[in-house]
Each structure stands twice: as structure tokens, then as C-alpha cells.
């Protein structure tokens, strides 16, 4: 109901707030809601911190979680969706001092169905977006003009929320079961007059923490390089430091960041060769020439490093023609 009122407030200024407009507004709102139908994925913004004043001064940024709860039996997609599907996208509206970055994707899961392999998430996922707080912008906006340091006190409204102070975005995703449906929603991260996020909760912050632990990490403990001939692609990973831990080879899987590199459906084999691990996979028939470099996620059932739980590592590797030593 609050959302509805906010939308109506935004559409119709208070001065023309008459019953007729209200009815008209209600009609349009309900009509659009009915036309869109209920989404199979519900999405909410969850901020990591209680407000902009709680943002770490060193990094000057906080994590904004995009929590996606997916209806049973359906799934959405990772940055590389695999053989079909589409990754979730976010189109941000410009904001004076909140500057969102790229989506950070928790480790994906593999879906095998009808001889097709896709990468994504079922049940629920919290995509993470780093949001930089531009202090300079806040200062020029609110302090230099003789304001009292509070943000959000827009114009004459006193405590009324100024919509400009919400960070808003349109989120688009494709959700699939046996059929695929493109869905979208508009979301806002609201700020109150003190720069706090009314949407903040401790449990939300914990869910962000949990999701951060699922982000693939770049580690110095392992190094990777790729070798490719016309139909086989090898990822060779070598431990670089004593931190490196060998996960169970059976559960290791390479998720390339890009489509069209490997055949997603073909099995990946993993063998230990001395102290190296060699993953072998089939080259995609849509790959036209050998890339110089390849990035992706190496996922395992256990941690790749000692004393910490890092089940997915991000690798960036040069790719060469096969050498005889393999």
C-alpha cells in the first residue's frame, strides 16, 4: 500500500489530489498490475549497511544485494547463461552521490535438461553490486549551499521523501522452466533525511555476508593457463604457494565467463598430474579462433585454499597451442 501511495504521489502532485484523479490513478495502477501478471521471481534491494554514514571510509562503498527469490522449479541465469537463457541485467537511474558498479555473481549452478546445459540459480540468490558513495557530491549538494547537513530534505516538503534521493533501477531477467518468461521490475533503495536506508535489516546484512562468501575469489595460491587445439581445451592449474589446497577432483567444474568457448553439454574430465590439475573439455563448435586469454570460475566441492572456505576461484589465463609435455 505504501508503494502504491508513493507511486500515486509521484504521478499526481498533492495540489491536484482529487478523488477523480485517485480513481483514475488506481485504475491505471491496477490495470498495469493485471497486465504484467505476478512474476515468478520476487526481487528486493537489501543494503549491507544501515545508511551512508555507516559506509566504510576506506573503501567508500557498500554492497547492495539484489535478492531474487525464484518460484519452485524455475531458474534464472548467471553472467554466462550457457546454451540458452539470458543473464539478469540492471539499468540504474543516475543518482547524485550513489554510484553503483557491475554485478558480482555468486558461484553458479549447472542445469542439465534435454541435452542442454545452462548456468544459473534456482530457489534464491543475492546478486551483489558495489555502490560507491561520492562524498564530494554530498558535500557540494548539501553543505556548500548552507544546508544543515541532512540529506533528503528536498524543497518545501519538510519530512517528505524527495524521490531523487532514492537509488532506483530497472531489473530485467529471464526465468525458465520448460518455458522461458522475460520479467522485470522497478526497484528503489530509499534514503531518509538522515541518509539512512529504511530498507536495512540485520538479517538482510547477514544474507549479504552469506552471498559474499559465495563470490568466486581471485587467489594467489593457484595459477592457471589454457591450452587449445581444434577440438580440446585444457585448463591447467598449478599451486603457487603453500596456501593451495587440492579439492576433490570429481567435483571440479570450469564455468567460462563467455558463451561459445566450450561445449557446455560435453563432460569435463579432471586428472591430477603430479602437482598439477588438468581439466579437459570440448571446444565449442561456435568458436572460430583461439582466444589469447580466457576467464572463468573454477568451482569445487571443497576449498581451494588453506584455513578459509573458498570453493570457487576466479581465473584469468593465457591460452596457447598445446605443448608436447602434456
Amino acid at each position: 500500500m505504501i508503494i502504491l501511495r508513493n507511486i500515486l504521489c509521484a504521478i499526481f502532485p498533492l495540489a491536484v489530489w482529487k478523488p477523480a484523479t485517485l480513481i483514475l490513478g488506481m485504475f491505471f495502477f491496477l490495470a498495469s498490475a493485471v497486465l504484467a501478471g505476478p512474476n515468478r521471481v520476487s526481487v528486493t534491494f537489501i543494503p549491507e549497511v544501515a545508511g551512508i554514514n555507516a559506509v566504510d571510509n576506506q573503501t567508500g562503498a557498500f554492497w547492495l544485494g539484489v535478492e531474487m527469490k525464484i518460484e519452485d522449479g524455475w531458474h534464472i541465469y548467471w553472467r554466462n547463461p550457457g546454451d540458452s537463457g539470458l543473464p539478469t541485467t540492471i539499468r540504474w537511474n543516475e543518482h547524485a552521490f550513489l554510484k553503483p558498479g557491475e554485478i558480482h555473481w555468486p558461484r553458479p549452478f549447472r542445469f542439465d535438461e534435454d541435452g542442454i546445459t545452462t548456468y544459473g540459480y534456482s530457489d534464491s540468490v543475492v546478486l551483489l553490486v558495489p555502490v560507491r558513495v561520492s562524498r564530494d557530491e554530498i558535500n557540494t549538494l548539501f553543505h556548500s549551499s548552507g544546508g544543515n547537513g541532512n540529506i533528503g530534505q528536498g524543497g518545501s516538503g519538510g519530512t517528505r521523501k524527495n524521490p531523487e534521493h532514492a537509488l532506483s533501477a530497472q531489473i530485467n531477467w529471464l526465468v525458465c522452466k520448460d518455458i522461458c518468461i522475460p520479467e522485470s521490475t522497478q526497484l528503489s533503495l530509499h534514503l531518509d533525511g538522515k541518509g539512512d536506508f529504511p530498507g536495512y535489516s540485520e538479517s538482510g546484512s547477514e544474507r549479504i555476508d552469506r552471498s559474499r562468501r559465495l563470490l568466486p575469489e581471485s587467489v594467489t595460491a593457484w595459477q592457471a593457463h589454457g591450452e587449445m587445439d581444434s577440438d580440446r581445451f585444457k585448463v591447467i592449474v598449478t599451486p603457487e604457494t603453500g596456501e593451495a589446497l587440492f579439492p576433490d577432483a570429481d567435483d571440479i567444474y570450469f564455468y567460462p565467463h563467455l558463451q561459445g568457448i566450450i561445449e557446455h553439454t560435453a563432460p569435463q574430465t579432471v586428472v591430477s598430474d603430479g602437482d598439477r590439475l588438468i581439466l579437459e573439455m570440448q571446444v565449442s563448435r561456435y568458436l572460430r579462433s583461439r582466444p589469447d586469454e580466457l576467464t572463468g570460475v573454477l568451482s569445487a566441492g571443497q576449498s581451494w585454499v588453506r584455513d578459509r572456505n573458498v570453493p570457487a576461484i576466479e581465473i584469468s589465463m593465457p591460452v596457447s597451442a598445446p605443448t608436447d609435455t602434456n
Partner: peptide, 13 residues
């Protein structure tokens, strides 16, 4: 361009 990574819904075999 003789081939390009296809996109779409999966074929329901």
C-alpha cells in the same frame, strides 16, 4: 560470418 553462438530458448526434445 559462417557461425555465431546461438541464443534462445532450449529446444524441448
Amino acid at each position: 560470418v559462417t557461425s555465431h553462438q546461438p541464443y534462445g530458448c532450449t529446444v524441448k526434445y
